[in-house]
Design a binder for these strands. Sequence first.
DNA 1: AAAGAAAATCGTAGCGCTATTATTGCTGCG
DNA 2: CGCAGCAATAATAGCGCTACGATTTTCTTT
Lengths: 348, 348
Amino acid sequence: MDTQRSAKPTRKRRKMQRVTMMDVAARAEVSPSTVSLYLRKPDAVSASASEAIAKSIEALNYVPNLMAGGLAAASSRAVSIIVPSVRNAFFAETVATMQAELGKERLQVLLGHTEYSEREEENLVRMALSWAPAAIVLTGLSHSNATRRLLRESSVPVVEIWELGSEPIEMAVGFHHQQVGHSMAAHLVQRNRRNLVFLGARLQEDKRAAHRAEGFVEEARKTSGATVEIIQHPAPSSAEVGAMLLGETMRKFPQVDGIACSNDHMALGVIFECQRLGINIPGQLSVIGFGDLSFSAASNPSLTTIRPPGDLIGTEAARLILERIADSGERKPTVIDTRFTLLHRQSS
Amino acid sequence: MDTQRSAKPTRKRRKMQRVTMMDVAARAEVSPSTVSLYLRKPDAVSASASEAIAKSIEALNYVPNLMAGGLAAASSRAVSIIVPSVRNAFFAETVATMQAELGKERLQVLLGHTEYSEREEENLVRMALSWAPAAIVLTGLSHSNATRRLLRESSVPVVEIWELGSEPIEMAVGFHHQQVGHSMAAHLVQRNRRNLVFLGARLQEDKRAAHRAEGFVEEARKTSGATVEIIQHPAPSSAEVGAMLLGETMRKFPQVDGIACSNDHMALGVIFECQRLGINIPGQLSVIGFGDLSFSAASNPSLTTIRPPGDLIGTEAARLILERIADSGERKPTVIDTRFTLLHRQSS
DNA sequence: AAAGAAAATCGTAGCGCTATTATTGCTGCG
DNA sequence: CGCAGCAATAATAGCGCTACGATTTTCTTT
């Protein structure tokens, strides 16, 4: 009750170890503003200042603090990419491509896996928004209402990849999986196959595979004299499931002469199982896959398949994001159809 | 020239749209500090306050700003994972597992691909450090000196994955690839194979595959009467390269009776090429792969291979990171050997 | 019931940067 | 010459949150 007790702002914050922009500015004998400007828009700074700043950065080994930058600018240099799983080669391809493309512009990729759950996707979107990302990339067009609302209310650019068909939130890059189904069926019919089966895995969760199956059946039904069935399994697609489903197919529909698979893993299983059962491909049975995975051209027989442009989807999505950021503007609905290619090889 | 013109600090910042922690605090009738505490250490806040805050967050649909948090705390909720490529199923598995594990603690994954370039890795580490990440995960133990220095000078926890053998920067989770080579050779020798060949792809860049090849040769040389060769190609591993190299092998070493492959993609190519050439596996030739990829158990013949615990590496790495963060302490060198498993199947 | 300890809560100074406005130094031109 | 017009640079006010210390409230203990 004597010595003044209030006026004592003896604060001390964590030791500042880091080299800051102010340090760089001091050494270059310019103001911090100029350094910031140099980093963001180099063309607006004179050659002499630029040189001094560059030298200073080099000498101090300056690493910018993106958290501070992001906070001040209310937007970060991160792009959140949310896919079902990067274990899936399709999405791995796109993610890798996007990382490379976005990296050129010093944008970082924040990765999330939904494991095919809309609930988890919503979670990830919420977390992503905490980062004030430069953009958010989602897989497919099916999302929970809450996800849609979160995204619509934020002003973050949104790109949906790997699927076209219904209304996108903002931008979309992909292709029509139903058309893939059409192409598969049309191809088999053209090869004079009439007893068709689609082998599916996890069609419940994998909407895109389900669309392919739908398209396949739809197209097959157009052909007079053709029959078509879907044989499926709830487990994720794999060669083992493919082999198993081929067995089931031969039991239930021994007259089958054309099979389309959820993807090339399944088709590979079919090929192996046919070898074991002594079924000749393509003599007795034509097989077509989806994915053109790394082994598909090398198999015996080589596999007829659909090649989805995973890398093109990545580059186009990255391009859209970059353009949208440059415009720093409003939503601009854009849809890019990347198409797909049917590769006719020995199995059909 | 009349209305007073100076005393007008009419600044206005970008419109504050976002709901902030202060809004939450006001509605819950507590101070912002308490809200912050509630978010970070819920146990330190009373039940009544917790409830009010939770309700307020819900009502306002509050999304925390991680940039602000990261700036204030000098450390973010991001973990940077840098792998050669997520196209590679091994790394995809580990990345996916880590994302799931870290996600539980609300840590986000920042992804980077080196494409097997140390130069690019250095770049990515520099970018990663800009985020003040909670931890950095690198693949393998070979890094440029600059990378090492950057990491050592920062106080960010570092985990190196998928390889053991030399001195890690701080923590490491993986296994000895040389031992994999040993096991492969020992297995083939045990199956009475004496004319051994290792089929390699891109051994120049893929140090781990090179170590497996080394170990293979080393072990084979211990066996009297055994011969061993390495046949390789600079392209990335694939079934096509495997098929091609099998052809080369049969020309150069027609007496070969045991083949070990860089990985299962190569082995798959070998299996298909043998089918085409009429070579019986395992009668005439034993084949062993690496990876236990999704098709390996389903192939014809099924493939003997080494299963690397990609998911275990992920969970252990995540665990180390979480513990290290909780300790918030100093470097603590740790090495976890996850081992690997040899799966003996039909191909050997 | 008072004193002391423990638990819960609060007040505030930054974290390092960017956006915005203000200032300065030059041109060129009537 | 005086000043508009422009380019380059600088000054300043936050961005939204956490760390830290201070303060208040509640619980023990004697």
